[in-house]
Structures are given as structure tokens and as C-alpha cells.
Design a protein around this nucleic acid. Sequence first.
DNA 1: ATCCTTATGTGATCTAAATCACGTATTTTT
DNA 2: AAAAATACGTGATTTAGATCACATAAGGAT
Lengths: 207, 207
Amino acid sequence: MDILTLKKLIPEMDVSLLEFIAKDTEEMEVPSDTTLLKTGSYVQSVPLVISGLIRISRVEEDKELLLYYIHPGEMCIMSFTACCSSSASMIEAVTLEETRILLIPSVKLREWISLYPSFNFYIFSLFNRRYLDLIDTIDQLVFNRLDERILLYLKEKAALTTLPLLNITHQQSATDMGTAREVISRLLKKLEREEKIRMGRNQITVL
Amino acid sequence: MDILTLKKLIPEMDVSLLEFIAKDTEEMEVPSDTTLLKTGSYVQSVPLVISGLIRISRVEEDKELLLYYIHPGEMCIMSFTACCSSSASMIEAVTLEETRILLIPSVKLREWISLYPSFNFYIFSLFNRRYLDLIDTIDQLVFNRLDERILLYLKEKAALTTLPLLNITHQQSATDMGTAREVISRLLKKLEREEKIRMGRNQITVL
DNA sequence: ATCCTTATGTGATCTAAATCACGTATTTTT
DNA sequence: AAAAATACGTGATTTAGATCACATAAGGAT
């Protein structure tokens, strides 16, 4: 892995540490829609996303809920703790695009934590980001109705891709929101009538 | 603060670090039902609970939801990040009992992170605990019905106090669960008919 | 063009939970 | 002891969302 790319992705990290990351990790190219981690499985290395996008969700008996995404420059914090405490994964990770990752072996992880304060601050900031994501999810679930949740979900998804046009089916949205397709279809119709979105087959435009 | 108590509370931490914690923090005795932190407020120091219990919740326009508790030996991780990134608090903290805390100044925090790997691991483990609490909350909200949620809530609350007899009103439970008192009253009645709990004025026994 | 798969639309019905609107106990205060 | 505050019970009604049961539409594949 070349250091310049890493430096751009994680500018807050020590250059000497970046050199170790470039040297001591295994690079991997993962195609889109690949399951990287399933609920209950164990990990011995922690993925750091270089490019692409990973979707993290909670699954329980054919019901599911999107928790958050892992962006380039971010490590999977759940793998990190699963790795540190050698506990089973509570979440599911699937690539949404072709994704390049670096795999950090658990030994190196412990080493860098002890040697580089900047690595610790990096992990703290990641933990915090995901923590806030979860609180936000809880907020949505408790304080907002589904139509508002859908709209926010679409807006956030649109923000990921620069274009306001999303290529998703109602079923995909329903899965992300943890609800049924018909419910989403109906509420999307309502949002279209309210001129908040526009719909086509396989696509939604946020207005 | 005496080091022996600290050592018992947080055995995984370096003794030399514990000595600094004992020396460089301000001890405080907070009475029960005291609000330590409100949504939107800023903090310059991080509380570490020595004894007692703190209730952390999310509040939004007269609706509320219990997120988790902070136990003895635990630091408030939200204050930690609010302190590190000098951002406003997203949560509310109230003591549920008379509570002793140590206040860690943000300067010391940064110092210890850089010097003591064991301090970092301590923070990681805390982050992880709270992270799992949040995922559990999300699980409850998405996958379980309110009657199951209430029962689990009561069981967890009972586990906090050793006795299976809880001194809470329906209104308090309702506030913790983010719902209305009547709803709780009805469901508690149902749980009593199912012989899962027993009720009295101001008290609930989990069977 | 026809078939087939995938995506969407929509009525009907059901259910958990929220809300409204009270009544009735039980303590606490005066 | 009377009044007031607090805690709990419960019917009636409403609502969001889930579930069932289809109908229709739009692309791909053959």
C-alpha cells in the first residue's frame, strides 16, 4: 500500500505509523455485495477501508436494521473490539461497492496502541463517530415517525453519492429501515405527493 | 482519594497511573437525583464514578429514553468525547443514588492517554460496553414488543440492586421506556396476570 | 412477441401502542 | 379530619404501522 494515499485518508496519524500500516497489513480487493462479517462469527484482523463503502447492520430472525456505513479512512470498530476481546461479532458487514481494505493483524493493533498516541486518538474518534451514529438511530426510532425517517435516510444516502438520484428499490429501503416493502411504497407515494421526492423504477430523487 | 479503593475498582490499570488519578483529580460527593449534565451543555472535565449510580438518557421535547447506567469504576464516555472534541453533550446524566465521583481534568486525560497504554485499553473497553448497550437498546426497540421490553428493563433494574423488589412508580418506568404511564400500567397488569411480576404501590417484584 | 422475473400499487384487515378522559385509591400536608 | 398531591386503573377512541392478498407494470430473457 502506498503511503501517500494513506496520508491523504488519515492525515491525523503519525507518518512513522502510516509506514508501519503500509508495511504490516494485507491489502484486499473485495467486490460489491460481499459479506465480510456475519453475526456470531469471529475475527482475527481488523479491516481499514481504503476505498469503497461498507454497510453495517443488525440482523435478527429475518428482520434487519441498517446501523451505519464505514467510509474510506475508517476502521471497523466492531471488529476492533471483537478482536481485542476475542468475542463474536454482533453485526453484519456487507460491501456496497467494490471496496479496497487493509487487514490489520491483532498483534500489530496492540503494538500500535502502546506505541502511538495518534493511533489511540484515531480509534477514539472512530468510536465516537459510530457512537453518535447509534444514538442518532435510537433518536430516529423513538422520536420520529417512519415517513420522516425514510426522508432522512434518503437524504443521507444521497449525500453519500453526490448525485441526488438514488438507485434503490423499495425493498432495499425497507430492509435498511427494518420494515416491510408495502409500508415503504405507501409512504414514498405520500412523500411524492408532498413533493419531497420523485420516483421512478429503481430510482428515487430527493428534491 | 485512596489508591486501594481505586485499585479494587479498576484492577486493570497501572498502579503508577492510579497514583496520578488519586493525586490529580478532584473528589466530589453528589446527592441523589442531581443532574450532572444536560443536553447541549459543555464539559471541561470527565467524571469517574467511585460509588453510586448515574442514569444516562436521551431527551427530546418532553419525550425521553433511558440509554444506560454508569457504574462504579466507569468513566462517562460521552463526557470524554465531548471533552476531547469540545462538543456539546447529546445526553443527560442524573444520579440515581448518592454518588462519589472523581473529576479528571481534560489536560490530564490527554497526558495519560499518551503515557499509559492501560488507560487506553480502559477507555476502549468502556466505549465497547456503552456501544453494546446502545446496540442492545436498538435491538429492543426494533425487534421486541413493549411488554418484553418492560420485563427485560425490570430484570436489569433488579440486577442492579440485588433485591428483586424495585421501588419505582409506573411513571418512572414509562419515562425510562420512552412511553406513557397508562401504557405501562396496562402492560404491567398483563405481566402480573401472567405471573411474571407482582405489584404494589411504588414497588414491583420480578418473579 | 411471449414469457418470466422483478418492481411497484393498493385495498382490506389487524394490532400494538398512543391518546383522551376519566375514576379511584393511597399518602402527605395543612 | 379535611384537603391536596401522588399513584394507579380502565374504558373508549385513534393512529401508525404490519400483514395479507392480490393487481399491475416494466424490463430482460428466450
